[in-house]
Simulated assay, not measured.
Amino acid sequence: MIAFMVLCLIISAFGGAVTATSVNDWYATLQKPAFNPPNWLFGPVWTVIYFLIALSGWRVWLKRGIANAKVPFTLYATQLTLNLAWSFLFFGAQAPFLGLIDIVILLVLIIINCAMFMKIDRLAGMLLVPYALWVGFATLLNGAIWHLNS
């Protein structure tokens, strides 16, 4: 469990560091939709989600190990990589359209990962549902920000 938590904390820390580079200046100047949540909400939500992602991966690892679940864990690693890449694209590169492309692919991979994990451990799959829902919302938000500012 500790390894899965450390992995998620590293991703969270790098993503947070990149986000911090422009959240108070560039991002603050963007037009945002009425459903844009306050900035303070993102940190607590992502903290819970990263914990659930780690717990989900750990449960599948307990059931199958990485060697016996290569495809689900490859997908797990890929969606976490795209999760981190989004921060670099949206905030680091200040490119909402590139972020939108990334997050759409990310959402699809999360849903597939959720389904694969559910076949191994139902609870592990269910633990990824809040992640999919939040990224679904973030996809709408990213799309709206791109639309309003292009």
Rank of each mutant, 00 (worst) to 15 (best):
S56R: 04
N68Q: 15
W40H: 01
T74A: 15
F90Y: 08
G43L: 13
F35S: 08
G43V: 12
W46E: 03
K63T: 10
M116Y: 01
L75S: 08
V104I: 14
W26K: 06
Y50V: 00
V71R: 05
A115I: 13
A20K: 11
V18Q: 04
D102H: 01
N113R: 02
K32T: 08
S22P: 08
A54R: 04
P38H: 09
C114H: 12
I111E: 04
V48M: 12
G65Q: 07
N113H: 06
T81Q: 09
T74Y: 11
P72M: 03
W61D: 04
V60W: 02
G57K: 09
G99F: 02
P33Q: 12
P37Y: 05
T81I: 10
F117W: 02
W26A: 04
W46N: 02
W86Q: 00
S22M: 09
L55F: 13
K63C: 05
N83C: 07
V48S: 08
L89N: 11
I112R: 05
M118H: 13
F88Q: 07
W58I: 04
A115N: 13
L62K: 15
L106Q: 01
V60A: 00
I103N: 02
Y76M: 03
I66C: 11
S56Q: 01
A20I: 06
G92Y: 11
R59P: 02
